[in-house]
Write a protein that binds this DNA or RNA. Structure first.
Length: 925
RNA sequence: AGGCGCGUAGCUCAGUUGGUUAGAGCGCUGCCUUGACAUGGCAGAGGUCGGCGGUUCGAAUCCGCCCGUGCCUACCA
């Protein structure tokens, strides 16, 4: 074996072997365990969020598989309607091809073509992550079977009256030319203006203050062209008398009423609100209450349409705004313009300002679906981890609005609704089916609704559509409900809530029992990773490494804002002066696991992955050591287990218990930390070092050597199996070397049994004994370190005081003590004997002494002692203060008080000893 | 405006039901190329747990207020 491991040389071939061996498919007779993958965009590429998400899922899946469960991690990809259509459209534009000129059919062909070309990318990247997905059952949200499920759901919901079509005010993305749902609107804080306009009162009326006009304030001047009323609060004394009157709407020549509505806040602005029912959600409701006409002044691209005065027709929103303000100013009707901070609704895909627009759309009547979905979480059938996300879920679900599911797009499931010439609607999975269902004559022309369903409508069916629904399949029976859903908090509403509603409604089952919510992966500076900011990181670059030049090229090409390039380049050069070295998949996965703390966002820290790469390397070298030192091991006998063997086995027992608890409670960070701590600081730092005293000592019996050799291998084997779920590649590689030494049948580690706690006997006596040994060794090392004694320099060691147990332990561990403390000799002094001048450390009542004798400077030792004494004094003060507090002594539980008393006595004794020692040193100095 | 988080060592984060001396990784300091590993070993420094007040014998932990910060939801024109 090489002196350090090379991830690239092992990972890819192993994955191919696993996949070929069929290990990723459900096997065996264990309990069913299923995890749903949030289906990635089929034409996308893997980002840090996927890598994080999949690491956690794969860790659970591999763990369960080793525990004997019949596991299914269903693979699949999403057609990602809007995102994909945008991308393909942009690519075509670059070739000078316009979507509308190309036509629907050819465009959709282009998208399928693009899927063929790029659809494999993300799948290969997922494989590089080591994700043990069942590829044999790979699905796509637009494959034939899935489409059947989507159409079935639509038709049934329609027949049940839970899907309806109607003209409603919806969020309209003028750039994409489609409606979007509430969730797809992002409200961004922006700096704008508030315009105050004067609307002249009709019929010579006057306000209470004697003005012949009402002043309205607005952030959207251009919409005044569609105003159909001015509203005031019914209790507002300034305007009360004008209610029922009228104003002349400037620029349009229209006369509109003054209405009273409590929606108007008297305190805000002027207390007069222009009402534009066709272009504002609030105004829309006010309009409904007062039977106001709705005047739509926008075309689908948000230019002014023919309902507005001729002067403004054809203008963009922005141009119309300027024109309206200018014209009102000329008329002397512009009162003032104030700066104003406002929320601007923008489409999450296009970034365009969203326009509330009256259009015909399809909706899901969500109330009846939401009710059982809320109950399922309330009654505990579905559980969120961490629990607080249940409140997030509830608050949204209890105030949920009907869901707009139609999109004026071409890429997606076309809505299975057919219209005849008289405007009748027929819903069925195909035109043929519609004719049969509604008994329509073949001669009646039907045309299908041109719109498609939004992507989340189909991904909401994921838990059952992937398993063959609407057919009754064995998979559906076995794997619904699934066990755990692992996902980011950003898609609780988009995906999680909708899966719960749809799955309950159509199967009567919950989609999953547990929802584990993890945070989002952020850049080291805490910002969201984005192409625009140029702070994005590609998980593959951590696996394979990347040069600075390549990274620069990646981050600065195809920018939407090319002017950012120099800034991005500068930051990149600063953060990655040498690019990124290849850390390998295991290091990346281990890092994600370690960072996965309870539901909060994670900042991806480069130092962490480097440290974890080193950890992988540590495992490599520990294995190398073991393989080099177990020659002569008797495979048929476990030999005699010495104290150190019993100790590490006991530690291993504890480790298994801890990692099982960590995974059961979704504490991936603890899972990783326990493995790291055990492997490095118990097994490598202590056990391997201690084992040398056994293996390299000719006076030790073969039986004892055999015991240690067995234990080295057995614990290593356990460690590899324990950590396999998170670091699959290195553990497989090493286990293939290690397992044969234990005479185990060959095969992949991924299908071996997960260690059970009782495979490794707990032994508290051995643990106490090794704790003692560690303390003594650490004490001597401390003296050596502080006194700058060279590691090669042997020191004589003197013991004094202590009890029988100390003597027994010292005798039993003599060789190890000498080796790890590099002590040339260990001798006991009688209680009364006068020790030579020495450096002193205390382990319990035992005095551990290193004679100064030319090795140690008196000054230095005095300084070290003073430091030690100071520490003891502080502790003693703290304890004394407690014990002198009568309230503490009388009110605290007796055992707590007793503990404090014991502590005081102990500290007092040690302090006296140390002070005496310092006095003696002073007489020397 | 509401709701939910967060604020612990230079940095990134743990800290279970209040009870030894508040931990880890990275970084830092000193020594060390010892026969698994310099992607390493040993030793060490470093924290008034955001602030104030309260409950308690005892608070990083529970309560209140404040400051800072992040996210989600919301109809203030």
């Amino acid at each position: 074996m090489d002196s350090s491991f090379d991830p690239n040389s092992i990972e890819q071939s192993l994955y191919a072997e696993w996949e070929a061996a069929g290990h990723f498919s459900p096997n065996g007779n264990g309990k069913n365990y299923c995890v749903l993958i949030p289906p990635p965009n089929v034409t996308g590429t893997l980002h840090m969020g996927h890598a994080f998400n999949q690491t956690l899922m794969d860790t659970l899946i591999r763990y369960q598989r080793m525990k004997g469960s019949r596991t299914l991690w269903q693979m699949g990809t999403d057609h990602a309607g809007i995102a994909t259509q945008m991308l393909v459209e942009r690519r075509l534009n670059e070739q000078g091809i316009k979507r509308l000129e190309l036509g629907r059919e050819k465009f959709v062909d282009e998208v399928w073509q693009w899927r063929e070309e790029s659809g494999g990318t993300i799948k290969e990247q997922i494989r590089r992550m080591g994700s043990s997905l069942d590829w044999s059952r790979d699905r796509f949200t637009m494959d034939e079977g899935y489409a059947k499920a989507v159409l079935t759901v639509f038709e049934r919901l329609y027949d049940e009256g839970l899907i309806y079509r109607g003209q409603r005010l919806v969020n309209w993305d003028p750039e994409l030319g489609t409606a979007i749902s509430d969730l797809e609107v992002e409200n961004t804080d922006e700096q704008g203006h508030m315009w105050h306009f004067r609307y002249p009162l009709a019929d010579g009326q006057q306000t209470a203050a004697g003005q012949a006009y009402l002043t309205v304030a607005t952030t959207r001047p251009e919409t005044m062209l569609g105003d159909t009323a001015v509203a005031v609060n019914p209790d507002d004394p300034r305007y009360r008398d004008l209610i029922g009157g009228q104003v002349e709407l400037p620029l349009t020549g229209r006369i509109i009423p003054i209405i009273a509505d409590t929606y108007v806040d008297m305190e805000f602005g002027t207390g007069c609100v222009k009402i534009t029912p066709a272009h504002d959600f609030n105004d829309h409701e006010v309009g409904h209450r007062h039977n106001l006409p709705q005047i739509n002044i926008f075309a689908p691209d948000a230019t002014i349409n023919n309902n507005a005065p001729a002067a403004y027709q054809g203008l963009t929103r922005e141009a119309a705004r300027k024109a309206v303000v200018d014209d009102l100013e000329k008329l002397g009707l512009l009162d003032k313009i104030e700066p104003h901070a406002l929320k601007v609704p923008r489409g999450d895909r296009s970034g365009a300002v969203i326009e509330p627009l009256l259009t015909d759309q399809w909706f899901v009547k969500i109330g009846p679906l939401a009710e059982p979905a809320i109950a399922a979480v309330e009654n505990g059938d579905i559980e969120f981890v961490p629990k607080q996300y249940e409140n997030v879920y509830f608050s949204w679900m209890r105030d949920i609005q009907d869901w707009c599911i139609s999109r004026q797009q071409w890429w997606g499931h076309q809505i299975p609704a057919y219209y005849d010439d008289s405007g009748n609607t027929y819903v069925a999975s195909s035109e043929q089916a519609a004719r049969e269902k509604y008994q329509l004559d073949a001669g009646i022309p039907l045309r299908q609704d041109p719109d498609v369903l939004e992507t989340w409508f189909s991904s909401a069916l994921w838990p059952f559509a992937t398993l063959g629904w609407p057919d009754e399949t064995p998979e559906l029976e076995a794997f619904l409900p699934s066990s755990t859903l692992i996902t980011g908090h950003d898609i609780i509403f988009f995906w999680v809530a909708r899966m719960i509603m749809m799955t309950l409604h159509f199967t009567g089952k919950i989609p999953f029992k547990t929802v584990y919510i993890h945070g989002l992966v952020r850049a080291a500076d805490g910002n969201k990773m984005s192409k625009t900011k140029g702070n994005g990181l590609d998980p593959l670059d951590f696996i394979d490494g990347i040069t600075l030049d390549e990274l620069l090229a990646k981050r600065t090409t195809n920018l939407t804002q090319p002017k950012m390039a120099p800034k991005i380049e500068q930051a990149t050069r600063k953060d990655f002066p040498d690019g990124i070295p290849p850390y390998g998949t295991d290091a990346l996965r281990f890092t994600f696991c370690a960072l996965a703390t309870t539901g909060r966002d994670v900042r991806f820290d480069l130092n962490r992955i480097e440290g974890n790469r080193n950890f992988i390397n540590k495992l490599w070298n520990a294995t190398k050591f073991v393989l080099m030192n177990i020659d002569g091991m008797d495979p048929d006998s476990s030999g005699e287990r010495s104290i150190i063997d019993q100790w590490i086995l006991s530690k291993c027992h504890t480790l298994v218990r801890e990692v099982e608890f960590a995974l059961a409670t979704y504490r991936f960070d603890i899972f990783a930390a326990k493995i790291y701590e055990f492997a490095w600081h118990e097994y490598c730092d202590w056990y391997v070092e201690l084992s040398k005293s056994v293996l390299w000592d000719d006076t030790v019996t073969q039986d004892i050597k055999n015991g240690t050799r067995r234990t080295l291998v057995e614990v290593l084997d356990a460690l590899l199996r324990i950590s396999h779920p998170v670091i699959p590649f290195i553990t497989e590689t090493l286990w293939q070397e290690v397992a044969p030494r234990l005479g185990q049948p060959r095969g992949s580690i991924m299908v071996q049994a997960y260690p059970a706690p009782d495979d490794y006997p707990a032994n508290t006596t051995a643990e106490a004994q090794i704790d003692w040994l560690k303390s003594v060794i650490t004490a001597v090392r401390n003296i050596r370190g502080e006194a700058d004694i060279k590691p090669k320099q042997e020191v004589p060691l003197l013991f004094q005081g202590g009890d029988e147990n100390d003597r027994k332990l010292a005798a039993a561990t003599d060789a190890m003590l000498k080796r790890l403390a590099n002590a040339g000799s260990v001798n006991w002094l009688d209680e009364q004997a006068e020790a030579p001048p020495h450096a002193l450390a205390l382990v319990g009542d035992l005095k551990v002494m290193v004679p100064l004798a030319g090795l140690i400077d008196v000054e230095a030792e005095a300084t070290r002692l003073e430091k030690e004494i100071e520490k003891h004094k502080q502790d003693l003060n703290r304890v004394d203060a407690k014990l002198l507090n009568e309230n503490f002594v009388s009110k605290a539980p007796a055992d707590v008080v007793a503990k404090e008393k014991a502590k005081r006595d102990d500290l007092q004794g040690r302090l006296t000893t140390l002070e005496d020692q310092l006095k003696k040193l002073d007489t020397l100095g």
